[in-house]
Nucleic acid binder design. Sequence first.
DNA 1: GTCTATATATAGATAGAC
DNA 2: GTCTATCTATATATAGAC
Lengths: 185, 185
Amino acid sequence: MNTKELIVGTANKQLIERGYNAFSYKAISEEIGIKTSSIHYYFPTKTDLGISIVQSHSKALADTIEKTKDKNALEKLNKLFLYYKRLVQDDKVCIVSALTSDINTLEEPLRIELIKFSNEVIAWTASILEEGHSQNTIKVMTDVPLKAKMIIANLMALIQITRIEKSKESFDQMTGLILAELTIN
Amino acid sequence: MNTKELIVGTANKQLIERGYNAFSYKAISEEIGIKTSSIHYYFPTKTDLGISIVQSHSKALADTIEKTKDKNALEKLNKLFLYYKRLVQDDKVCIVSALTSDINTLEEPLRIELIKFSNEVIAWTASILEEGHSQNTIKVMTDVPLKAKMIIANLMALIQITRIEKSKESFDQMTGLILAELTIN
DNA sequence: GTCTATATATAGATAGAC
DNA sequence: GTCTATCTATATATAGAC
């Protein structure tokens, strides 16, 4: 991993673990043992760095979509839920949640990137629902894009609730409930 | 409204409109025309002020519970949903959402207050579900506390999604869906 | 490409006059 | 109870040596 990637990775980790507050050049610099001025060499402004973080999530999602493209809808759905489960296990929140509280203070280019990523996640979820419908493994719903939005909203919020409770148990219970309601058995 | 209440109200507004970042003594001081040192007179530390903000939400909730205590379960449920709809209309998020991203950076007393308020909201929601069940207006569910948690999680997340989309339309569609699934008609 | 040094702004907080 | 003045820490950011 080169320095640039290390910076993005570290910044991302701090952002989703401790919030937008803890995401600072100084904190990154201390963690990876490099001066803040060196971070500015790669990312002149904090907005530049923020954009790179969101784009790294975008890229990871694209990879997952590519890797699972030959799996069936149920397997894809499980993959999606597994992604959020991992976040919970690591006491992290989704990047969308992490930035949404502060959305009114973000510079326009970063806000645009965040919206773009959020739409990609929802679009993939919707495509899984459509596919599951045609494979007769996922229940038909009247408004697929709306349902996709609700599923993602649910996962985002469940992570937050789980965090407050400091118990990872109810996350599994609740995702179990959502999956049970979605799938045909 | 006295100065102390004015400070809490202004701080709260900034917190849920622009996130934990924008919630600073300086920003409050500029908005209400008082020096930061005067704010410190009322709230020595930022944690003190944060606690007062959360407590003000707690008090508002207690008032709502008291005021609606003679209404039926469906009316209470509508009141609950209306509270979140108002937040969306004002481009605000729920206080729980606003602070959860940063929960790992909050001082213990503030974190405790946040958890307490979150539990109050969930408990009220659960009691509405129970009441609706006995009045035969709300569908029976296996695990009421879990369902209550999911409803609140849904509302919190819908606000966030709505914010990203800059469209208030899907909030109504989605809460409509939730209410339709919950109620007996 | 990484460093030292520095600039400027702001953070939360305190002492003490009035 | 509100002010001025000040403290210390930290923020993002830049200039320029190596």
